[in-house]
Design a protein around this nucleic acid. Structure first.
Lengths: 251, 251
DNA sequence: CGGGAAGTTGAAGAGCGTCAAAAGTAGTGG
DNA sequence: CCACTACTTTTGACGCTCTTCAACTTCCCG
């Protein structure tokens, strides 16, 4: 069995219906509000958001939506981690992002999603029906502005990732990736090291444009260079951050 | 001299001051309005845009702005072609896009530009002072909505490019690139073949994550396969579009 | 514990990069 | 109009990084 066939299979995992439910007053108690679209909304606005939101819970590997499927909802990650990706017809996969609490997904200019989304770990999300959210945006331009800011930021992140994919070596890619996870952990109020790396080597490879084996070899290399320590169960200590910084830009 | 040194030099071309000027009533006569931010504005809105716009003209290779420079203006391409790119400290370059009439650039969430921009051919642009445009957006939520749509679209394009950079072969990359240029030409009301390919092999390489030599070899390969005909002076005929479509996704 | 998935390591090979040189193209000035 | 120059493109030979294929080890979770 080739690598591509394996990928194809993993892209066709059984699709259990997501466990979902309308919750009481979720937004008022939201603990990631400061990170997300809902930052700086007033009470009335939060109430309006509460009125249209429902919650979704996904286990590891469970799909949220597929590329080209009608984009009926947008989502906000509240806990866990989500991977978003695009596939080629033969099963080759490119992760276009890993999303963490506070991140937004499902925004689409077209009528369909531009990518597939799947839980990495046990994950909870807020779900907003797209039409109803758009109606709210019409009412509150401030939210629309915030959304534009988030989209602009995503665009800058995407361009940074293009630089990585097109021009960095395997070592530079992995070092950049670890620093990215660390920075994102800090944003969520966690420590910058050790960091949690919940995704598999295969997922990381598909994010960095590498194979599982190359990712694994490169982790070993960074370990031997004293830049990182693998602590087991997805925990990585960045023991020499300066070395990683240098390596991430290839100097 | 290494490839990187050459790239460094080309990134440090002399920087003549762009020829600019306030023009009379530019927007009313704008021939790319239907493609851009200004689509579907009413007369009042167009007048307001006219009041803050000025025009910029650039010769081939002239820079428009550099990454990390304060983002004082946003621009709209009205004629020609612009390349936007990011650099690594050692001079490696990744094009993150080629922009054509109707395309918008310079939008930044931060206070500085996320990338550098430079003219490919003789190019004209509309320039909007960022602060004044933001004030207009505040006034006309419809324009902000349009901008959000454009940013969402850019995001989908960026993700498609990540798939290309991370997972496609040289042949698939070049085939995808030619089809992209063709589709964009159609959007601008031009024929789908022959297309104008105004950028150098080196620029194309930096867009596709390849070297000049590999791009050149791949063009030769596509030519020999009968998929394209090089007509000279940057004109390429897509003589077998179906073959290119197949090659672009690697089937 | 035990079985299956995930991760690691090794060996060999392919695709693209690097270096080098020739061929083509465009701009300049006599 | 043509020769001269400088740059871009093409082609060739070779090498290296990353992929592929395969085997082994480790880690989980029942």
């Amino acid at each position: 069995m080739t690598l591509f066939e394996i990928r194809k299979m993993s892209a066709r995992l059984p699709t259990p219906a997501p466990r979902t439910g309308r919750s009481e007053s979720p937004c008022a108690a939201c603990n990631v509000r400061h990170l997300t679209l809902c930052a700086a909304l007033d009470d009335q606005e939060v109430a309006d958001m509460s009125a249209i939101v429902s919650s979704v819970e996904l286990g590891p590997g469970e799909p949220l939506f597929d590329e080209a499927e009608p984009a009926k909802n947008v989502f906000n990650v509240t806990a866990g981690a989500v991977k978003i990706y695009k596939l080629l017809p033969d099963g080759r996969r490119q992760m276009t992002g890993f999303l963490f609490p506070g991140d937004f997904l499902g925004l689409a200019n077209e009528e369909t999603y531009a990518y597939s989304a799947e839980a990495v770990t046990f994950t909870t999300l807020c779900r907003f029906p797209r039409k109803r959210l758009e109606a709210l945006l019409e009412q509150y331009p401030r939210m629309e502005r915030r959304l534009l800011g988030m989209a602009s930021h995503e665009l800058a992140v995407a361009q940074e990732q293009m630089l990585l994919l097109g021009r960095k070596t395997a070592r530079e890619k992995v070092a950049s990736f670890l620093l990215l996870l660390s920075r994102r952990a800090v944003q969520r109020g966690q420590k910058d090291s050790p960091i949690s790396v919940p995704m598999s080597r295969n997922d990381i490879g598909d994010y960095l444009g590498l194979t599982t084996e190359t990712v694994s070899r490169t982790f070993t290399l960074l370990k031997q260079a004293g830049a990182i320590v693998l602590q087991g169960s997805g925990k990585v200590e960045l023991s020499d951050r300066a070395a990683l910084e240098v390596m991430s830009d290839g100097v």
